[in-house]
């Protein structure tokens, strides 16, 4: 990936130090591996050193490992551009999308640790079973609920009404927030931040009429009251959603409903 810029048309004969060349360097990835088919099936650390470029992301380095070093390395990714939510993983102890984390933003003098997100059963290497996560998502009914007859035109909404829940529409269901929450780590039954974010998206939508049902669901034992305001979710969200704030707004809606 060397680019040669601004060299054509000039008579300068110096071939060294190309202008615009991207620096390359060696990075070591320290990856938590788990191979279910081996007799012991024990998780262990494995280090890979690859040459990467200054513009590369963690995902590029992992591709290099998978494509050139060890094809058995298993992880999810699809869009590679931070929009499908497949590649949330724990990078240097923080939940991040591998495709949005630039190597140059990490300390590459030390190995970069990469682990599966916590609190969900590991299937293989960095692939976890997302079913408990999606089960909670389904339970908050993430779809428009209305009463009465279908309107003949679209359901109108003012810019202000749309703005009310704009932040929580950005969720890509990557599970970075839920799997960064210490309550979810120990109590896997907790709905978790992502389910609450997606409930928020409908509870505060002026066109939706299912708010009472959703509040009812999240008002329960494993709902919003499990949240201890740790802020890990806000820190983890690759979409910059103010997750803790959304949870607090749902709590406030319940309190105004109850008193």
């Amino acid at each position: 990936m060397t680019t040669v810029l601004e060299t054509t048309g000039h008579a300068t004969p110096e071939p060294a130090a190309e202008v615009g060349a991207i620096p390359s360097f060696d990075v070591t990835l320290r990856i938590r591996r788990f191979l279910p088919d081996t007799p012991e099936a024990e998780a262990y650390w494995e280090e890979f050193t690859v040459t990467a470029h200054g513009t590369d992301r963690v995902l590029d380095a992992m591709h290099k490992v998978k494509w050139e070093v060890d094809g058995s390395l298993t992880f999810r990714r699809s869009c590679a551009h931070g929009i499908c939510g497949s590649d949330a993983m724990r990078i240097n102890g923080r939940n991040r999308l591998a495709c949005k984390t630039l190597l140059k933003d990490l300390d590459i003098k030390k190995p970069i640790t990469i682990e599966p997100i916590k609190g969900l059963p590991v299937i293989k290497d960095l692939v976890v079973d997302m079913e408990p996560f999606f089960a909670s998502y389904r339970e908050i009914m993430p779809f428009l609920i209305t009463n009465g007859n279908e309107p003949t035109r679209e359901r109108r909404q003012s810019a202000e009404q749309r703005e009310r829940y704009d932040d929580t529409t950005k969720c890509i269901l990557c599970a970075a927030c839920t799997s960064s929450c210490p309550v979810f780590w120990t109590d896997g039954q907790y709905f978790g931040p992502a389910a609450i974010v997606n409930a928020h998206r409908f509870i505060f939508d002026s066109r939706d009429e299912g708010a009472a049902q959703r509040l009812e669901i999240l008002n329960d034992r494993e709902g919003v009251w499990r949240c201890r305001t740790v802020f890990n979710c806000t820190e983890a969200c690759p979409r910059g959603i103010e997750v803790t704030k959304a949870i607090q707004e749902v709590k406030r809606a319940m309190i105004t409903r109850a008193f």
Binding site: V122, K124, Q189, N219, W225, M254
Partner: peptide
């Protein structure tokens, strides 16, 4: 089948809605 040897993090809990404001 592929994930059957891996136990779930904890035993499932009854999450039936109680419709009370106890936790609130």
């Amino acid at each position: 089948e592929a994930r059957s040897p891996i136990p779930a993090p904890r035993s499932p809990r009854n999450r039936r809605t109680t419709r009370t404001n106890y936790e609130l």
